[in-house]
Amino acid sequence: MQRFLDPSVLGAISGLDLVAKTVVDGFVAGLHRSPDFGFSQEFAEYRAYTPGDDLRHVDWNVYARTERAYLKRYRGETNSLLTVLLDASNSMNYSSHSVNKMDYARFTAASLFYLAIQNQRDAAGLIVFDDEVRNYIRPSTRQGQLHRLLSGLEMAQPRARTDFGKPLHHFQEFLRRRGMVVIISDFYESPAKIIRTIEPLRFHGNEVVLFHVLDPKEIRPDLKESAVLLDLETDERMEVTPEYTRNEYRGKIDAHLETLRDLARGAGMDYHLLITDQPLDDALREYLTIRQGRN
């Protein structure tokens, strides 16, 4: 089943809805064999019936044995709000293999939306940003919301550069209801600045999750000879040596990742590094874990 979550396989599927369905169905099927995770329709507890409760949830078998009406409660039954903030800056266009970071981010977001809407009946929304807010789809559980979200993902084309400062200012206007905020980005910015910008979202009682999407070659560049590199966001050119990438660059990127993770966790956020050649289940697993915690 793991092969359905392989990004290179998903890259060959046309249509984000099909990608999301494939990923989530495969992921759910995997969960059913796992003893560690429950799911939304899993029994949680009985609660005494109070007038006004939906009679469909009364466990009539218990009533027959005890002559008392109890409601059967399930996990995840409560509705949540999922908002995905998708970085659509030019740096997301980088790829060293068949799936670039933007595609991977789209797959992740689409899978989250599919899981939230189809399986959890959660409200889901999307904010696409680079140095401005490019698109905003209000979280909703209305009919056709998934289609709107997936269309929003399809239309999100990388351009410009990342600037968390300006769009985050607007986020707070959009995110008035508490819920889960997932930020998918490559976070090419100072970790302190990133956290400082995102931290206010946490103050509103949101669960904030950072999905850090990186290409494997961004973490471990494999230059065999000196080359001129072109910055996708700034168009800056720089001649670099393999020795530098092998030694100093790796140290710097590792420090960046570690700092970002530490600062994010220090600020009460969840941080996950997603490598574009790894399966998508980490993101989905993280979503379900947080959602269970919220219940």
Partner: peptide, 27 residues
């Protein structure tokens, strides 16, 4: 002539032009 290679961000790179050229010439 060297074709530039696109990369996400150069924020972690530093200019090492001289060493690069020297290395290329050496090889």
């Amino acid at each position: 002539t060297t074709d530039p290679h696109p990369f996400s961000s150069l924020m972690f790179f530093e200019k090492r032009t001289q060493s690069s050229v020297r290395h290329r010439r050496l090889r």
